[in-house]
C-alpha cells in the first residue's frame, strides 16, 4: 500500500496493483451543509494484501470502501481495479463487475434471511450461473473452511452473530474474488469472537492469497492487519506495515 499526496489523476503505472486510486473525492450535501467525505485520496493496493483502513467515525472509511466496491461513485478522481477503469462502467456493468471480482463483508452480517447458510454462500455462485450441485458443493467446502461444518442448513436466525459473520466470510470468498472488502466486520461481535474472525480472515489471506481491505476502528482488527492505513478528514494521513 502506497499513500500518495501528489494530487494527480495520472493513469500511468496501472498495470500491477490490484487497486489504483487517484484523487478520489466525495462530497455530500445536506440542507445548507457540505460534508467533505473524501478529499483527494490516492493509493495503490497490491494483490494479496491484508490491509486495514483505520480511522475515527466520520473519517471517510466507509465512503472510500463504498467507492472501491463500486457501490458509490466519487465526485472526482480516477479508479482502476483489476485493470478496469471502473468509473466508466454503467450501473449494470458495475453490478456485473462486483459479481465477478469482489466479495463483501458487512458490519451487520447482512445474510439473506430466507436462505440457509449453504444457500447464502451459494447465492453469488448462482448469480454467476454455476450449476446447482456444483455451487452447493463449493458452499459446503467454504463453510467447512470457516468452521461451520454441520451448520449448513441453518437459517441466519438460527446462528450466533459470530457464526453469521463466518457465513458472510464464506459467501465473500466462495466466488474466489480478486478482493474482499469488509466494513467494520467485528463491530457487532464480542472481542473474542472478533479476534477469532480476524484470525480466520488473515489465515485465509495467507492460505489462498485473497486480497482483503478491511475498514475498522476496532483495535483487534487493526492489530490483525499486515498493513495499516490511517484516515482522517477524508484523507489518508498515515500508512505503515505491521
Amino acid at each position: 500500500m502506497n499513500a500518495s499526496d501528489n494530487g494527480t489523476a495520472s493513469m500511468e503505472g496501472w498495470d500491477s496493483p490490484l487497486i489504483q486510486a487517484r484523487d478520489l473525492s466525495r462530497h455530500f450535501h445536506s440542507s445548507q451543509v457540505e460534508v467533505v467525505a473524501l478529499d483527494g485520496v490516492n493509493f495503490d493496493l497490491q494483490h494479496g494484501a491484508f490491509s486495514v483502513l483505520a480511522g475515527r467515525s466520520g473519517s471517510g472509511k466507509t465512503t472510500l470502501l463504498n467507492i472501491l466496491g463500486t457501490l458509490d461513485m466519487p465526485d472526482a478522481g480516477a479508479l482502476n481495479i483489476s485493470g478496469r477503469d471502473v468509473l466508466k462502467l454503467s450501473t449494470a456493468e458495475r453490478a456485473d463487475f462486483r459479481l465477478m471480482h469482489m466479495g463483501f463483508i458487512f458490519q451487520a452480517y447482512n445474510l439473506i434471511r430466507v436462505l440457509s447458510a449453504r444457500e447464502n454462500v451459494a447465492y453469488v455462485l448462482q448469480l454467476r450461473g454455476v450449476a446447482r450441485d456444483e455451487r452447493l458443493r463449493i458452499a459446503d467446502t467454504w463453510l467447512a473452511e470457516v468452521g461451520l461444518e454441520g451448520l449448513e442448513s441453518r437459517r441466519p436466525d438460527q446462528l450466533s452473530g459470530g457464526q453469521q459473520q463466518r457465513v458472510a466470510v464464506a459467501r465473500a470468498l466462495a466466488s474466489e474474488p480478486d478482493i474482499v472488502l469488509a466494513d467494520e466486520p467485528t463491530a457487532n461481535l464480542d472481542s473474542h469472537t472478533g479476534e477469532a474472525l480476524m484470525q480466520l480472515m488473515r489465515a485465509l489471506n495467507e492460505k489462498r492469497g485473497t486480497t482483503f481491505l478491511i475498514a475498522s476502528h476496532d483495535p483487534v482488527a487493526m492489530d490483525a492487519g499486515k498493513e495499516l492505513l490511517m484516515m482522517e478528514d477524508g484523507r489518508i494521513v498515515e500508512q505503515h506495515r505491521q
Partner: peptide, 16 residues
Amino acid sequence: IREFGVMMALGCSKSR
C-alpha cells in the same frame, strides 16, 4: 430494502 442493497452489492442486477 436492506437485503436488496446487499444483493445488489453482491452483484445482483436491478433487473434481476
